[in-house]
């Protein structure tokens, strides 16, 4: 069974480009309905399918995602 993971998203730095959404193999991420102070819809986690693969963080142009994975 795949390991469990989690992400922390710096929503203030997120520009809502959605590149991370396309990179996530488990459709864990989506754009928020709200906007941050710059006016961008930002990435949020919408389910608990994260495996901590870090694909989202690797392609994030703004380095807003920190990834954790169970040992």
């Amino acid at each position: 069974m795949a390991k469990k993971g989690d992400v922390v998203i710096n929503i203030e730095k997120c520009k809502g480009c959605e590149v991370c959404l396309a990179a996530c193999p488990h459709e864990v991420l989506a754009l928020s309905n709200e906007v941050n102070s710059k006016g961008y819809h930002y990435t949020v986690k919408v389910n608990s399918g994260c495996t901590g693969c870090a694909n989202c963080a690797v392609v994030c142009p703004d380095a807003v995602i920190t990834v954790y994975r169970e040992k």
Binding site: K4, G5, D6, C17, V58, A63, V67, Y68, R69
Partner: peptide, 25 residues
């Protein structure tokens, strides 16, 4: 899971904390 021993990916310290001016994506 969000605790230091589980950290697998974070922004490198060789990048500063400034918000980049580049367009989204």
């Amino acid at each position: 899971l969000i605790k230091p021993e589980n950290l697998v990916y974070e922004k490198t310290k060789v990048l500063t904390d400034r918000v980049m001016h580049y367009c989204p994506g």
